[in-house]
Design a protein around this nucleic acid. Sequence first.
RNA 1: GGCCCUGUCGUCUAAUGGUUAGGACACCAGGUUUUCAUCCUGGUAAUCGGAGUUCGAUUCUCCGUGGGGCUACCA
Length: 499
Amino acid sequence: MIRVRIAPSPTGNFHIGTARTALYNYLFARANKGVFVVRVEDTDEMRSEEIFEKDIIDGLQWLGLSWDEGPDIGGPFGPYRQSERTDIYRKYLHALYEKGMLYRCYCTPEELEKERQDYQARNEPPRYSGKCRAITDADRIRFEDEGKNSVLRFRVPVEELVFTDLVRGDVSVNTGLIGDMVVAKDMDSPLYNFAVVVDDSTMEITHVISGEDHISNTHKQILIQRALGFPLPQYAHIPLILNPDRSKLSKRKNKVSLIEYRTEGFLPEALINCMALIGWNPGGEQEIFSLDELASAFSLERVHKAGAIFDIQKLRWINAQYIRAKDTTELTHLCLPYFVEKGYITPVNAELFATGPFVTKGGREVDFAYCENVVAGERERIEILSEITDRTELFFVELPDYDPAILTWKGMSTEAVHESLLFAEHELLAIDEEMWNIASLEERMKSAIADKGLKNGEVLWPLRVALTGLEKSPSPFEVAAILGKAYTISRIQHALSRV
RNA sequence: GGCCCUGUCGUCUAAUGGUUAGGACACCAGGUUUUCAUCCUGGUAAUCGGAGUUCGAUUCUCCGUGGGGCUACCA
């Protein structure tokens, strides 16, 4: 049984890079009928916070990356939070200590820093000299009596260590360059590389799929793994997501928190689709993939080796594809919070947030269907959900505010504009309420314009601006249909009074 | 500095020991249209460099070079 895991550290909001690693693990698990585990790596007490764990769990859920075992749902290899596994780590730390593979190091941070600098100065790899290796029991007891702080270091054997990476092939390193590493602050406080090894083994993880930035940790982990007598998992290091300048994706240069993308109105399907295609491709020319399609096509053999820039433009385009494919009702539910946030509408009471009725900014009461029509008219124009408010305020105010000069189409005279509006008003007034829909409005108006020997633009441009107050907007027919006859007429009259 | 990883259009990528090196995003031009957007048509644009192997290399090998990662009592 294939078992993989995502092991996020709750020291910040859910990072987009972590989300992608989670995705690849998820896809690999699903593609191989395996198990996907979520494990929270909160050994760093100082930096870990519960709200971040919540953000990560929420984010995974939102993305639709369901897991089979995790801190929230438990599982046969729990607990799934490292802070709750202290007993397990202690047991293995003791075992290694008894075997003499660990030793206490009493060096102070200042001493270590000086060592590092000395090595640097000699152009040698900065590493721990191993000077506490040979500490005698007598010294140790004396240090303890003096209350000196110690950490547990692992005796790193010098050798040429090679592991086979499923993406990169053999990766070798001379362990003499690593130096004796600290594996725990004390018996109750393991550090990352130690906790990971114990967890991956005790949770029977078969494949460790993580970012390329972990390659050098892998050698360290293998050393510990071997010392503990654990079997080695398979490793696969996936390429990094990069900033446009090709550096590792960072907060400084990019939006990196999943929540930021979510807030802006990127859809989970789009993010999944986009992240999957950065560093992996199934071949062929398909661009849009559902999570299930990705899962059935996924294989580590097709994962790339080189890092890839995260192109926000492509993500926006993919997002637009998903927005257009969405059911209008569902899309409206997704857009409602943006209308409310902008103050365009307010639910008449809190329980009715999702269904209406709402009171508009202009004081009118509207229902869900009204909002749905507004969304339907704009869906081709937005790439992310938050843009739904860019050109829709006009539907929620009594009268739009605009410069009357923009009522004029291609050098028309003021008189002509006035006449066009009068003509439009006249024609629209003649249309019955029951015929007040996009198709009928368009048909009636266009034939009336043709009959009068006018160009469409001469009437439709001033009409559209009268209704919207905008130079760029949906067609006057769409807008009129949404506004309704009475509001349409009043906006035309308002425009007439301003020409 | 050391170690490790890596290099096809601006970006994400496909493909092959022999192709006009394909697609998508972005960009540009044209069409549709009252505007914008959508949509349709077309266009610009790439195998990092040098050797070697080979009839033939972008593909295989080596060297160079560019880029990145790691170098914690963080993860």
